[in-house]
Design a protein around this nucleic acid. Structure first.
Lengths: 220, 220
DNA sequence: CGAGAGCGTTTTGTATACAATAACCAGCTT
DNA sequence: AAGCTGGTTATTGTATACAAAACGCTCTCG
């Protein structure tokens, strides 16, 4: 994307992440031009993108609001992500090249360094974690799958700012990544899928623990 | 969407569907303003949407081109659609209300009427078919799932215009729908998922038969 | 000949003015 | 008091002019 609209996107996103703005609150394009420092045209493009990522929503009369993710919305999102990312892991296990595998090992070393004592660096962990998952998606070589996952992964980022990860959560995550790498090295799609499934499902429960109980137990 | 950009979207889409334009061909925003009769601003919004639906693609330098769907792309799309729509069928089976079920039965009667002899009306069939699948997605009550499926289903519409359906294809489709309705009436998620899976996979092979052989057999 | 620099043309990106529509509020009617 | 109605303001949508970037061409230099 071009410079101004990219800047607008990043600025609005940062603004949403910063927590200065409440879920359900209305935003106007004028406010956003002030926040971003660019004119309405690129702001509108950025807003379209954020709408697509479901960070912003529109009322029936085109007013713009900060999206409000319920616990059920989040669970739904995790379920979809699991479905798609397991598929991606399976595809990746079939297609991964030695170079890609080496790259993933490097990323995972970085991830482990980030959580090393004495002081785990959560932001650095999250960056490495994201790079790891992106590498899998890249190896899956499925543009539509990648696009969909990108949208799913974007949204919860908003919520994770206030989240606390225990050192054990971080270490378990690193172990999952080790096992995923082993599955890729073995070229075993079923293994990769299974590890990814438990990895994400556990992540959901870790996440959910801090949010509250489900309101509806019917669903998968 | 607003009037002008909606009109632009529909006009560009129709233009792509009409076959007057080849895959891979470049389009400029100016051309599109002429085709649509609106200014560049709403054209650009429509283009963003079509990019998102992967009917248009951008070069690395922001030039706009008609997307070129390879056989592998189409297979990938069907695979994703199957994954998501099976999930939707499963959810729908858990949640369907009597009113929704009656609605689906009505839609399926319309579908059967459309393919009745002497002269099956394929356009009418396609409309009813779409309504049927939309009803399932609605019953699944998962906004993100619905949004993703909408994008997946959009694209192949482009290609199916020239497609020929045998009367037997149409009848088998109607039978699948009958069985889906039975699964929903029974409230059996596994049954619904299984029927949807075979329904879509058969649709893929019907589709693929007219397109040509796969270039890569590694994938699911 | 071929590679690359310079320059006019084409195409996309941004700002801004104006138009259309939705929300708001006051005052009226019943 | 509840609900409509007219006008006023706030907000979004569209057109257009200008800026920036990419393309294609020619000309030059090695």
């Amino acid at each position: 994307m071009s410079r101004a609209s990219e800047r607008a996107y990043a600025a609005i996103r940062a603004h949403l992440l910063s927590g200065q703005v409440k879920a359900g609150e209305q935003l106007t394009e004028d406010q956003l031009t002030q926040i971003t420092g660019v004119s309405r045209t690129p702001v509108r493009e950025a807003v379209r993108r954020l709408e697509n990522e479901l960070l912003l929503v529109r009322s029936d009369t085109k007013r713009l609001f900060v999206a409000d993710w319920s616990r059920d919305d989040i669970e739904e999102m995790f379920t979809l992500r699991q479905m798609l990312e397991c598929h991606a892991a399976e595809r990746a296990a079939r297609r991964m090249t030695p170079g890609q595998l080496a790259e993933m090992e490097a990323v995972n070393r970085e991830l482990k360094a980030a959580i090393a004592l004495p002081e785990p660096d959560v932001a650095r962990f999250l960056d490495a974690n994201r790079a790891f998952h992106d590498a899998i998606i890249a190896a899956a070589a499925s543009p539509r799958l990648g696009q969909m996952l990108a949208r799913l992964v974007e949204a919860p980022v908003v919520l994770r700012t206030a989240r606390t990860y225990s050192p054990e959560d971080l270490r378990q995550s690193a172990r999952d990544h080790d096992e995923l790498i082993a599955a890729f090295a073995a070229g075993d799609p079923e293994w990769a899928r299974a590890v990814m499934g438990s990895h994400l499902r556990r992540a959901f429960h870790t996440f959910a623990r801090t949010v509250g109980p489900a309101t509806d137990a019917r669903d998968t």
